[in-house]
Design a protein around this nucleic acid. Sequence first.
DNA 1: GCATTTCGGTTCAAGCTTGAACTTCATGGC
DNA 2: GCCATGAAGTTCAAGCTTGAACCGAAATGC
Lengths: 162, 162
Amino acid sequence: MPDEPRWLADWERDAWLALASLMFKLPSALDAQLLRDNGLTLFDYFVLSNLSMVPDRTLRLSDLAQHTSSSLSRLSNVVKRLEQRGMLRREPDPDNPRYTRAVLSDAGWELVVAAAPGHVAAVRRFVIDGLTKEQVGVLREVACHVARQVSEGAAERPARNC
Amino acid sequence: MPDEPRWLADWERDAWLALASLMFKLPSALDAQLLRDNGLTLFDYFVLSNLSMVPDRTLRLSDLAQHTSSSLSRLSNVVKRLEQRGMLRREPDPDNPRYTRAVLSDAGWELVVAAAPGHVAAVRRFVIDGLTKEQVGVLREVACHVARQVSEGAAERPARNC
DNA sequence: GCATTTCGGTTCAAGCTTGAACTTCATGGC
DNA sequence: GCCATGAAGTTCAAGCTTGAACCGAAATGC
């Protein structure tokens, strides 16, 4: 469509290819650790972890979808499976029955608590450890920038941690 | 398992959550652009693009799997579909019939050429543009570090661009 | 008030990925 | 030469994700 596309310079292309490699590998590596040790996917873990860090361990599904950068459709399926496993329950929001709230169960709480150390260790090993404080700072800036660009391209609000 | 897990400090956790948000959103955003404009997933594009940049537009499947950070199983499926669409063909390696080579067809070449400008524009918009040269440099370092950590944890060789 | 739109959420089919099992072929030991 | 081992690919079932269609309830327009 553009007459003369602005190709990437070498230093830009290298950064992009490295990021692409990360994008393809890191999720499977974290999935593998959690699945092996706790029977959870990374996405499952994020859902439970978000609930565990919030007052009353309760969130509306639409808020949870924002927190986990996921579609409502995907979240609905995952929450259904987690409910069948007894990790949380769904209930209509008493304030406004149009909303559905997900409430973490005790079993769900215990599962997050059990899974957290191994997961954090994996995040340290794969990402954080071995980087300088400056590199971690820039990583945060860059990742926030990307998340913001993607969200605004899709006309959504950016995640709250940016 | 560890007696006292080393939790993440706030500044580490913020960087990790931002990266996680990127990991969840960026692939779908790039998939969406390519799928809409050229009927390709990001992974399809990577396969064709790798072939297009190599002598004879030909690679062994196992090498291609390394280049695209994918399992052989996934690659085998994707290559089969791309072959059915006429974008490439498979043939036994004449040097060593144990290997299978993927050869980009003319239609495949034209598809990559047609898809590249829009894809590069998306990469610019979502990732590169708006960052300083220093940030892009650190992004490359960090992403290479992560890719290396993940690969060595899985006892594989790191990707060649690191 | 009534109709329309919008929002939150669910469901379903289609497609993709994963991991394990399997096949084939080459290589190494003896 | 012969068996065992391992690497390269393929296949298949099971599970997950996606997007579109759908439903019910609230808000909005008039």
